[in-house]
C-alpha cells in the first residue's frame, strides 16, 4: 500500500468534474492501483449513504409566492418613488437633464460658498440622535450653521464636500468621524468620497476615520470592488500602522477571495518589518482563504 496518488481527484471524478483525458487517467489509476480501487469503492459507498440522507429542503410553493409578492410590492413602490417604471428612453432623457442640473447646481453651490467666503468652524455630531450641526464662519466673523440628520442626503453631501475639500484637517477628521459613528446604509456617493479620502488624504487621522467609516458602512456586507482595491492598496503602502491595521481587519472580515488579495496577504505576512499584529492577520487570512 505505497500509493502516492491524489485521492481528492476521486471526489472530482465522482462529481463528474474531470475532463475526458483526466477521467481516463483516473480510471486507469483505479484499475491498476489496489489502494486507489479501495478508496474509490469506499467513496462510492459513503456517497450513496450521504445521497440517501441529504435531500433538498422541501419548499412550500405558497411561502415562496408570498415572499415574491412582498418583493414585488416593494419593487413597485421603489419604481414609483424613483420613476424606474418608465420607458428606458424617458429615464435616460430624465437622467441627462438631472445630471446637467446637478452639474449646474453643484457649480452654483460651490461658487456660492467661495463668494461668501465662508468656512467650516466646527462639525458636531450626536451619535444618539444621529444629528449633525455644522457651524460656519464668514469673513466678517458672522456665524451661520446647518443642522440635520446624518441620514439625509443633503447632510451627507455637505459632509462629503468638507471631507473632500476643506482645508482644515480637523474639520475633515470630524466629518469622517461623524460618518464613522453614524448608522447609515452604504450609498455610492458617501462610499466614493470615503474611498478617495482614504486613498489620497495626507493626514493620517483623517484617513483613519475614513477607513473606520468604511468599516461601519460595510460591516457584514460585501465590499464593492472599488473599496476592496483601495483597502488592499492601503494595507501595502499606507505609512500609518493604525490605517493599515484597520484596512486589514475589514479585508479579513469580508472573506472575499481574490488573486491580488492573496498576493498582498502573502507579501505582508512574510514582511519582517511589518507590525506583528498585521502579519498575524495576513497569515490568518491566508489560512482562511486556503480553507485551513
Amino acid at each position: 500500500m505505497n500509493c502516492t496518488h491524489d485521492h481528492d481527484t476521486l471526489v472530482l471524478l465522482y462529481y463528474g468534474e474531470l475532463t475526458g483525458p483526466e477521467q481516463a487517467e483516473v480510471r486507469n489509476m483505479i484499475a491498476t492501483c489496489a489502494s486507489c480501487q479501495a478508496a474509490w469503492q469506499s467513496l462510492e459507498a459513503d456517497m450513496n449513504v450521504i445521497d440517501g440522507l441529504v435531500e433538498p429542503v422541501r419548499v412550500d410553493e405558497m411561502d415562496v409566492q408570498r415572499a415574491r409578492a412582498s418583493v414585488r410590492a416593494e419593487v413597485l413602490a421603489d419604481a414609483a418613488t424613483t420613476g424606474r417604471a418608465r420607458p428606458l428612453h424617458v429615464v435616460r432623457w430624465a437622467a441627462s437633464v438631472a445630471a446637467a442640473f446637478l452639474v449646474f447646481a453643484a457649480g452654483w453651490y460651490l461658487g456660492a460658498v467661495d463668494n461668501e467666503n465662508k468656512w467650516v468652524d466646527a462639525v458636531l455630531f450626536d451619535a444618539n440622535s444621529q444629528q449633525v450641526r455644522i457651524d460656519y464662519v464668514g469673513e466678517s466673523e458672522s456665524e451661520s450653521s446647518l443642522s440635520g440628520s446624518i441620514h439625509d442626503a443633503p447632510m451627507q453631501r455637505e459632509l462629503g464636500v468638507i471631507l473632500a475639500s476643506d482645508i482644515d484637517p480637523v474639520s475633515r477628521m470630524r466629518a469622517a468621524r461623524a460618518l464613522a459613528s453614524a448608522r447609515i446604509a452604504p450609498n455610492v456617493n458617501v462610499t466614493n468620497v470615503l474611498s478617495d479620502v482614504l486613498a489620497t488624504d495626507g493626514n493620517p487621522v483623517v484617513r483613519l476615520q475614513a477607513v473606520r467609516a468604511l468599516h461601519g458602512l460595510f460591516d457584514q456586507r460585501p465590499l464593492p470592488e472599488s473599496v476592496r482595491a483601495v483597502l488592499v492598496e492601503r494595507v501595502e503602502v499606507d505609512p500609518n500602522t493604525a490605517v493599515r491595521m484597520k484596512a486589514m481587519e475589514i479585508l479579513v472580515a469580508s472573506e472575499q477571495v481574490s488573486m491580488d488579495m492573496q498576493q498582498t496577504m502573502q507579501r505582508v505576512g512574510s514582511d519582517e518589518r511589518e507590525n506583528p499584529y498585521i502579519r498575524f492577520m495576513a497569515k490568518r487570512s491566508l489560512e482562511r482563504l486556503s480553507g485551513e
Binding site: V59, V64, V71, R84, A85, L88
Partner: peptide, 26 residues
C-alpha cells in the same frame, strides 16, 4: 427589468426563487 419593468423582474425571479430559497435555507 433594467428599464424598470417590475413584471419582467418578477418573471426572472420566478425561474429561480424556490431553488434560491433552498440554498439559502441550507
Amino acid at each position: 427589468a433594467q428599464s424598470g419593468d417590475a413584471d419582467a423582474f418578477d418573471a426572472l425571479l420566478s425561474r429561480s426563487d424556490a431553488r434560491v430559497v433552498q440554498i439559502v435555507q441550507g
